[in-house]
Structure formats: C-alpha cells, structure tokens
Design a binder for these strands. Sequence first.
DNA 1: AATGAATGAGTCTTCATTCAT
DNA 2: CATGAATGAAGACTCATTCAT
Lengths: 198, 198, 198, 198
Amino acid sequence: MTEPTTIDSKDTILDAAQNLIAQYGYAGFSIRDLSRASGLAKGTIYHHFQDKREIYRSVMERDFSELVGGLQAAVAGIEDPVAWLHCFVRAYLHQANKRRNHIQALLRELGAMEGEMRQMAMRIREGVAGPIVTVIQQGIAQGSFRDISPQVAVMGLIGSLNTYIAWQLVVDEQSVDENVSDAIVDIFLYGLKKEETQ
Amino acid sequence: MTEPTTIDSKDTILDAAQNLIAQYGYAGFSIRDLSRASGLAKGTIYHHFQDKREIYRSVMERDFSELVGGLQAAVAGIEDPVAWLHCFVRAYLHQANKRRNHIQALLRELGAMEGEMRQMAMRIREGVAGPIVTVIQQGIAQGSFRDISPQVAVMGLIGSLNTYIAWQLVVDEQSVDENVSDAIVDIFLYGLKKEETQ
Amino acid sequence: MTEPTTIDSKDTILDAAQNLIAQYGYAGFSIRDLSRASGLAKGTIYHHFQDKREIYRSVMERDFSELVGGLQAAVAGIEDPVAWLHCFVRAYLHQANKRRNHIQALLRELGAMEGEMRQMAMRIREGVAGPIVTVIQQGIAQGSFRDISPQVAVMGLIGSLNTYIAWQLVVDEQSVDENVSDAIVDIFLYGLKKEETQ
Amino acid sequence: MTEPTTIDSKDTILDAAQNLIAQYGYAGFSIRDLSRASGLAKGTIYHHFQDKREIYRSVMERDFSELVGGLQAAVAGIEDPVAWLHCFVRAYLHQANKRRNHIQALLRELGAMEGEMRQMAMRIREGVAGPIVTVIQQGIAQGSFRDISPQVAVMGLIGSLNTYIAWQLVVDEQSVDENVSDAIVDIFLYGLKKEETQ
DNA sequence: AATGAATGAGTCTTCATTCAT
DNA sequence: CATGAATGAAGACTCATTCAT
C-alpha cells in the first residue's frame, strides 16, 4: 500500500528546487530554471505550489525535518554527554555532506526574509540547538562540564560546524572530511589553553 | 588630507549598495533600487561602474579592508596571545555591530559566486583568519596553547562569532551585546570539559 | 414538470458565470475564477461547455430570454400604448434591479465581440426594442403619438433606462429606485418643452 | 519654443492605447499589443507609465478633457436653451464620430473598476451632465421648459445619444450620421405624445 | 458526471544595460 | 559628470484548454 512507484511531481519539484536554492539562493533562482531542472512545465509547478515563496518554504521545511530526524536517530539512546556530542557532530557533518549545504542556504537567506520565514528559521535553530543545550545542561548537572552558558557554548559548536561546512564545501568545493569532527569536538571540549592556567 | 571636498558620487553609490546587498543579497537588489536609494540616475551608476558585478565587488572590497583595518588597529602591539584574542573578539563583534551584517552578506553569497568572486572570498577569509592562525601558532610555540590544529581552532572561533552575529542580529533583530565576547573567548580557551580528565 | 430534482451543474456554472461576467466582463473573468465560484472543478466546466465563449453565449442567451420573457409577461394584454409604456418601463427597471446589470455586461462587451456574438447582440437589441417600436407605430396609427421616427424614439427610451441603471447601479452602487420610472416615461411622452411653442 | 517636432513617446503610447481600449476594453488589451501598436518596446512603455492602470487612467483623462473641451467650445456664448441643446447634441455626436467610442469604452468598464477609477468616472459624468442640467434649469426658470427633474431629463438625453452611438457605431459599424441629432432633440423637447392631452 | 494533473502560450512587470544628449 | 529615454530578455505568475482516470 502507498506504493511509492508513481514519482510524485511535488517531490520532483522540491528536489530540483532544493538544488537550485542551495546553489543560487531564493532570489537567485527562477521558476523557469526550476521548470527546466524538474522537467515539468511552469504551469505544473504553479498547479502544485501557490508561490515561489511556498516552494521555498516547503523545501526548507522538508530539509529541516530530514536534518533533525537524522540527528535524532544518530544520538538516540546515548546517555553520556561526551559520547553524545561526538555522535552528534559526526551526524551533523554527515548530513551536511549528504544533502549539501541546505544549512548554508537557510542561513544565507535569513536576512532577506520576513515574518513567517523568520519564524521558520527560529524553529529550525531551536530544533538543532535545543537538544545540544539539553545535553550540555545534563553534563553540567552531572558535574562533567564546567558551569558555563549553554547557549553560548552551543553557538560555539554549531558555529564551528557551519563554518567548516561553508569553507570546505562552498569555497574549496571539496566534500566534507568527516574525520575532522573529532578535532572539532576536541577543541570544543578541552579548549585552546594548556591546563597550567585554571 | 582626506579632504571631504565633494561628496563623491562613487561613495554615495557604494554606501547605498552596501545597505541593499546586506538586506537583499546580490541577486535580490536591482539597479533601479540602487538608483532610488542613492538618488542618482541609473545612467550615472553605469557611468561610475561597469557592471552590477563590479558594484558588488567594490562594496565587498571596501567592506573587507575596513573590517581588516579595524581588526588590525584593535590588536596592534598586543603580544600576549590570550590578550590578543580578547581584543580581537571584542573588535570583531564591534565591527559587526557597527556596520551591520556585511559578513553575513558575504557568506550569504559565497555559494552563488564563481571565479573571481570566489577568490575574493578566499582572500577575505584569509585576511580575517590568517592573523588568528598566526597568534595561535605563537601560543603553541610559547607553550601556552595546546598543540591542536590552528585551522580547526580558527573555524571554531570565527564560527562562534558569526553564529552569534547571525542569531542576534538577523533573527532576533537585537543589536550585538559585546559583553558576550568574554564568554565566547572563555569557552574557546578552556573548553567545556572540567579539568578532571586530561 | 419543471422538476428541480438534481441541482443541475450546468445551471450552477451559468449562475456563477453570470455574476462574474456582470462584474468583470468577458476578458476579465477566468475559468479558474468560475471554478472557484461554482465549486466545480475546471475539468467539470469543460465537460459541460466546449469553450469560454460558449459559456458566455449561454449566459447571455439565458439572460436574454429571461429578460424578454419578463417584459412580455408584464405587458401582456395591455392595449393602450401609454399604459403599455408605463408597464414596460416599470418591468424593465424591475428586471435590471433583480438580476443586476446583465444589460450593462452585454453592452460592455459588444465592441470586442465578432461575428456570431455580434449577431446575438443584435437579436437581443431587436428582442427588446422590437416590441416598443411596434407599440409606438400603433400609437402613431391611432393618432395618439406624433409622427416621429419610432427607431429614434426607442433609442431615447432605452437609452434613458440604461443610463439610469448604469448611473444608479454601477456608479453610485445604490439599488434601482423604481419610482423614477414615471418620471422617465413622463419626459419621454411629453418632452421638455412647454406647450406654448408648437 | 516647445517645438512639437519630436513625437512624444508618451502621446504615441496613449494614442495606441486609446484605440486598443476602445476596441477591447481594459482587461481585453495587453501590454504586448500596446507595444506592437505603438512601435515601442514594452520596457519603454513602463518607463513612461507605472502601470497598465495608469495607462488606462491617462487615456480616459485625456479623452475626457478633449471631449469636455470640444463640447464647451461648441456651445460657448449660446444663450437660448433650445439652441444650446441643438448645438450640444450635434457636438456630442461629432466628438463621438471623430474619436470613436471612447465614451463606450468608459461606460463599458465602469462596472469592473473600483475606487479611484470610479471617482474619475463620476467626474466625467458630472463634466458632461453638469452643463446640461444647468441649461435645463435656466430653461425652467425662463418658463420655456416644463418643471421636471433636470437629472432625469439629462439621463434621457445622454442615454439617447449613447445608445445611438452604441448601436450605430459598435453594432452596425457604421459611422455616426449627424443628421439624426435633430430628430433626437425633437423627441427630447416635444415628447412622443400629441398635444391633445396636457 | 466529475476530477485534478499537466501544459505552453500568454499575462503584467522588472531586469541590467546602452546611448544620445 | 549626469541624465532619462530606450530596449529585449527575463521575472513571477495566470490563461484556456486537454486528458487520463
């Protein structure tokens, strides 16, 4: 039942749109491009979506749930905060590598979007950052993490990851090297400074 | 010197363009918008610049040299790596707060730009990241920093800062709270983990 | 007889189309609008009608026969030309008030229509104007009307009525005041000039 | 000075638009058509006008002032109400014949226009009907006209004229026969009825 | 009888750019 | 140095219509 044999046009469009948005951003891709890329007529696109904006929203929401789903699956059942972070980071880079820079695309657009879009962006931010905050709070409670601001710490971690993705993927056009994840977590956990101080 | 004799039309255009690019990105702003915002006729814009692309390039380069200049001035003469980092972070957030999200604008566009533009992006990256790498290497040489990859560490720091800017400035529309810089540097230096291990 | 068994989709479509045409004219309404307004799918509309043009034609013809039928019923059996005119004018304004400006809609489109449509328009014109001409000719034959051109006189009468409808209904958005009909007929019968002359 | 040698593009566009609107109505003509008809590129049209609506508005306003100007010139200095009416009607039919059915076009669109447009329509109505009302009131005051409602009388006159124009020009595609004007005025002044009554 | 997916030509409008003045 | 008129390609989106189900 629910045979996925029939290729759903809506998904075809979203797939093509995802690539175009990732490459050119919201303002930078056209419905004509999307029509060409998806192999469907312009009219068909507007049969399935009301707006260019609705296409964008749909792509972002689909991406988001896939990303959060992938992250949740990766860290499911892990109790130890340190192990959790290692898994999480590995999964994050894996997702980014697999579906190529949707996170970039999202961040890229934030400034130009209003209202409804902005709310979506905040939901996404919360969806990714929320679990990390929780884990850090657990670590602090357990006494294995220092008593710092989890929010600032999360920015440090996610910022590192996104910057890595942006620099490797976008500027150097290489694919993500997942081995770097250990190095990132290492710095995130132990910092730059030698133990002598503190 | 630096006589402000005639208000330079070129600068007027660049000022207006900077705002528009920051808000809407390269593809999202039009010469018509720029003409309105600058108060100069479209023809005049094309009298001073060859291309939309050249306008973009000019804005980015001007922004870049101002940013790097500001950072260099802020850390000039500081020898101690830790003090240097504190100053640098404070200056970085200050710049972002002052000239509002040009860094975002730059990052936003990286994916869509080719060749020449991409090279500029890499120069900018190097201009910001390079000095930090140098300082970290000095710290390592002096024995005050652990022997980790300076490149990865730099991503962590810059990533934290950019993420903070993006989240505060863009999503929450608040202005940057510069006091957070100490917290960011703290985590960057000492990490999350309590000293028990290592 | 006249069993209202199933609500006929065809009539549902025509009802919706009548409103849309009255409001926006032929070129100004779309099948999509009609689909929404009628609650039936676009495919269904094309199942019942071949064309947008056929829909238009059907609406006009239905409107026309209703209008002419209403007028005929109102004046049936009346012999005296003056009484006939009073009844006719009252009925005409009543129809216009009831079914709102279909006459306007028709007039509105005449210029843009060709061939077949134009013929329909002339039939309608004849259907409305014909009986009046006949009555005026009778009045002239009886000696109660002056010996003027019935065609010109009819234009005067219908023109007054349509102008009244257009100005009241369309421009001022009020509903038709049927009491004005006596004033219109009065001027039509006795003219502006005081009897002194002639 | 102000040499009219240079063919003004704005006027070229308005001329072409006037024809198209008269033929097809607002919704029925396209900017592409207008571009072809005027011999100017679509972009040029939008350089001179903001909107399709602004084009429409401009055409109507230009037509209106020409029409009202022509009528005013025709009746200037005439004191006797009856002579005034003869001149006015002749001028009205002459204008309609000369500039072909702009009045039709205007009436045609009234139903579909809102706000601003509707106000323009009412101004035009007042511009044409107002002077006639004044003359009729003068006639009543002088005792040469019966004491009827000038507003209703005006509708009768203008309605006759417009109906004549519509039937002759639009349906039968003939040009206006200006000799009919005397017949129209005759009926308007003396009515249908023989003097026996009243 | 009724639907909704699909289409491509068409809608209005904006685009970056050129050029004579 | 500055302008505004001009352009044709491209923008997002709607159109009337067809067709398999």
